[in-house]
Design a binder for these strands. Structure first.
Lengths: 230, 230
DNA sequence: CAGTGGTCTAGACCACGAT
DNA sequence: TCGTGGTCTAGACCACTGG
């Protein structure tokens, strides 16, 4: 068996008895401990990261992954409720909210022309204070005047419903595995290139009109999906 | 911008005009071309792999990814039908089929004791002759006597229905992103450690009895999910 | 057999975080 | 300021693929 495999298994077995709980020893410490080089140690670490056992914070170190959030893409349960049901603390941070002209792709999805204005909302979501998701939300200004004034660090669905009487009745999600883009990784204080789940979600009102175009990047080790079909 | 980022973007722009269509130049060629080292070139390649742009076959080289198979985890469409609808050629290869005592986890799922015998079926699935998935299927011998004699390189669901009058009426899928385990990677002629979608699917008959326990590993770049909710 | 990717060594410099 | 991870160099040997 290769050396990095050995290191990987040894690390997986470790109780990671470091100063900070959940934090792994530094790469140079591991290199000495296993009498190897940083390249090889990092190979082992990156495998464990790919498996979803550990994750890294940019220039800080490697950490053990907590358990994944279980999510059913069919159920329209909001993030806070979902987290609470699973004993996790949810938090949302609003990064930016501005009025823009959106990309062609998004205009087309809304069947609006390129002159239309959209709100563009960037948010980060945390579970137990760990950043796990970054999202972009687009919705037409016309339909949601004054949206910037609302409490955008809460549930958008609730705002739609309570403040605008818009009820989401149908949604479609496209889900792929890809690498976290560098600009998104930066917002999460993580490294680009790590596996992530990219979810493009379109939500429609009762008249089947698109009201909300949402792009989410989930840290792959933070989420698990469960779906039922009858 | 870092060198491997530059290389990554240059590679992404390339039309990959190599001998074999879809195959990238060798790592040493790229190293010369970009006046760098293999480590750095491989960093760029692995990023592209993580993004789902290219994949590698063990000791053969790097290849461009064809388009992903679109899959709705709610619909119970069989693999051949799904592929055909999307203009892809599906193929299944039976690796092994044997009678065993299954693991505790699986016995428990079936609510059978540890003495029960199961069929254990290993298969590989191909799209346009590219291996994209490896699976393990467990089902109780008691319920499917003589299953080994059937054409196990076709649809199991069809065999259940036609040969055993067992109709799958309900199923549950757990889906996570993880790394392809080395033993599975080997069966696919791929490298361990690449991102994959692991799907654990339990299928039930009309009496809500578990009939089929299925573990699938999909090459992450080969699949995309789309779900609707009402 | 030549060429490929898989693994590994033993260094180096940098930007950034913690202190 | 010191230690961290992020990036990079310039090699090496091996197992395996393909001709």
């Amino acid at each position: 068996m290769s050396l990095y495999q050995t290191i990987k298994e040894a690390l997986a077995d470790l109780t990671f008895s470091s100063d900070t709980p959940g934090k792994l020893p530094s790469e140079r410490q591991l290199q000495q401990q296993f009498n190897s080089t940083r390249v090889t140690v990092r190979e082992a670490l990156m495998r464990l990261e790919a498996e979803g056992v550990i994750y890294r914070q940019n220039r800080i170190g490697w950490f053990l992954c907590p358990k994944r959030l279980l999510w059913d893409p069919i159920q329209k349960v909001n993030f806070y409720q979902l987290a609470k049901n699973q004993g996790l603390k949810a938090k949302t941070e609003l990064l930016t909210c501005k009025q823009t002209r959106a990309s062609n792709e998004i205009c087309q999805a809304f069947t609006l022309d390129k002159q239309s204005d959209f709100y563009e909302i960037y948010r980060i979501r945390y579970l137990d204070d760990r950043p796990v998701m970054v999202e972009e939300i687009y919705c037409p200004v016309q339909q949601f005047p004054g949206l910037t004034e609302k409490a955008l660090d809460s549930s958008i669905t609730t705002i739609f419903q309570d403040d605008y009487q818009v009820k989401v009745s149908h949604e479609q999600s496209d889900i792929i595995v890809t690498a976290l883009p560098d600009n998104k990784a930066e917002q999460l204080n993580l490294n680009g290139g790590a596996a992530c789940l990219k979810i493009i979600r379109k939500r429609f009102n009762e008249q089947q009109e698109l009201v909300d175009y949402n792009i989410e990047y989930w840290l792959h080790s933070a989420i698990e999906m469960r779906v039922q079909s009858n």
